[in-house]
Design a protein around this nucleic acid. Structure first.
Lengths: 339, 339
DNA sequence: CTGAAAGCGCTAACAG
DNA sequence: CTGTTAGCGCTTTCAG
């Protein structure tokens, strides 16, 4: 089955007149080897087109230098941005990114079970839920898990999120300050910690301020569902004057519907607020008020966690970072003059 | 260095009272093994939390089942879409996707040289140029290369593109039919085959029809550069009445500038046409006329090529698919009545 | 500083 | 059908 087409350390050793272990040492950073021997070996290796087989290396030290990344919805620019940042950070840290599609948070799909068979240094789930069976599999396989933009009660899994409670409360305060009377909440995926925290914080703040509870529709964090949900909201007789969307993707969908289907002046007749502050939110076409999640810092923390977990695979840590409200044209900041 | 924390086939064998090779066979699809023996082994393995080490397996059959994917700019939705499709297709084919960041097409960056040390089944470059040194490295490492949305004269590399010449000519015809007088071309990255083909086809058609050559600015296929380039075009005294942008990302940038900085009525005062037909192009906020590249078919072809190349690593193939013009509101289809 | 030798965990003949 | 035996290509003691 093996075609013996690859150049191996043996080939180089024979050609350079040294032992195979000398070749290995020449390619190992801290190894004891005479500078000129090393040089000779490297030259020979270059000439033969030799590359150390990382698979074999990983087999020995039990570490692949590969990080698995489960990605749910790439339709969401926030995760695209995160993936971009993460790929660069991991790359800089000498780690490889093995990506696999991961829908929903139900059963761990076959691919992820498969992926665990590599000796992953860590598994990062980008806004993908961690089922308890998957958590168990990872524990068995000694693969540390890091949830990104999600948390879990499962001990043993780490997580990196921003403070959704503070974010949601800040948005609620902003809307009340703007004098909005009929506020709606466009929810994300039910059962996700992200939606739960944002919804709870939002409702709690309104309640504390004596404001009525918001109308509620679910957009599943996705554009299509959010489009339908917004239509339902705007078709009501008691049409809301503000919609807090649990992420920017849904907020963009809401703007599209409000502006192009209902001809509403977004920012005056209807305030729309998102969450994430994706690059698109700043485009003049949307000018979306949004609560910014610090993606670069979140990714940095993720990579820091990965390094820590490589040393202590069974430890875990839950990181919460601060975000910030970015007010733009899609929301009214002050109370509109009567009439 | 090795902590011996993983359960191995030996452990399972001892526990189940069989040989280690029996365990191997239990996990190999077509292997000759008694059903009940297999069952017993699988149960024991499950209990101990055993997983075959794919690294070791790959070491033997010289094939990692991993496909490397070089990604340049994830700011471009077309590549996000492609990455999404590709991750699913590869997954369905039982292949893993090892992603790495790859800027420009100059020197092969360290990470990609590193990645080659895995026994990749193939290397897919998403709109990333293939330098001749990298091509050489891949040839030496026996890793077949597939360029996606790019071509190269380098023999040995395969490619999957859509017919840029036809696409560009179709757009030119559409603009001429709309009676446009001062046409501009917003170019992509200089030196990329993609831009070269689109520009040549576009200019050739105009020339053949006796129309003047277009104004030209470069937007490097990116939003920021395209924004600046559009400003330069629209600041001219002889402002163009149509801009063909070499991709949708630049077209969106152009629309933003035209509409929000110059207050132009896009589609009437100024026609803007893109290329790729990304999902966003269909949003009412943009309603962008664009030439659709068949991403699903292109990805399908890519995966088909990967399979073929696994069998015959040194062969290669260049695939060209057909696209289609999608006319929307950002361009005028018929000649505007005089006055 | 260097070579010989013993594996890492697994698959693939080879006998039985 | 199953156990034994060689390795895959590399790193890492252990002698020298």
């Amino acid at each position: 089955m093996n075609d013996r087409i690859f150049v191996t350390a043996h080939d180089v050793a024979r050609e350079a007149g040294v032992s195979q272990s000398a070749v290995s040492r020449a390619f190992t950073p801290g190894a004891r080897i005479a500078p000129d021997t090393r040089e000779r070996i490297l030259v020979t290796a270059e000439r033969l087109g030799y590359r150390p087989n990382l698979l074999a290396r990983s087999l020995i030290n039990g570490r692949s230098n590969i990080v698995g990344v489960g990605v749910g919805d790439l339709g969401n620019p926030f995760f695209v941005q995160t993936l971009q940042l993460l790929s660069h950070s991991l790359d800089a840290a000498g780690l490889r990114l093995l990506m696999f599609p991961a829908e929903g948070g139900r059963q761990p799909e076959p691919s992820i079970r498969e992926i665990l068979h590599y000796r992953l240094d860590a598994l990062v789930l980008l806004s993908v839920g961690l089922s308890s069976t998957l958590a168990e599999e990872c524990r068995k396989a000694q693969v540390p898990v890091i949830l990104y933009n999600r948390t879990t009660h499962d001990r043993g899994a780490s997580s990196v999120i921003s403070d959704n409670d503070v974010g949601a409360r800040t948005i609620a305060a902003h809307l009340l300050a703007g004098g909005h009377q009929r506020i709606a909440y466009l929810a994300g995926t039910d059962g996700s910690s992200t939606n739960a925290q944002r919804e709870e914080g939002f409702c709690a703040y309104l309640s504390e301020q004596g404001a009525p509870q918001p109308l509620r529709e679910s957009g599943q964090f996705r554009m299509e569902a959010a489009t339908a949900a917004t239509r339902r909201l705007l078709a009501r007789k008691d049409r809301p004057d503000a919609i807090f969307c649990a992420n920017d993707t849904m907020a963009i969908a809401a703007i599209n519907v409000a502006r192009h289907e209902y001809g509403l002046d977004v920012g005056r007749e209807l305030s729309i607020i998102g969450y994430d502050d994706v690059p698109m939110a700043a485009w003049p076409a949307f000018s979306l008020t949004s609560y910014s999640q610090p993606a670069p810092a979140m990714v940095e923390e993720t990579v820091r966690l990965i390094h820590g977990l490589r040393a202590a695979p069974s430890s875990h840590e839950n990181v919460v970072l601060e975000g910030a409200l970015v007010v733009r044209g899609s929301s009214r900041a002050v109370i509109r003059p009567a009439g």
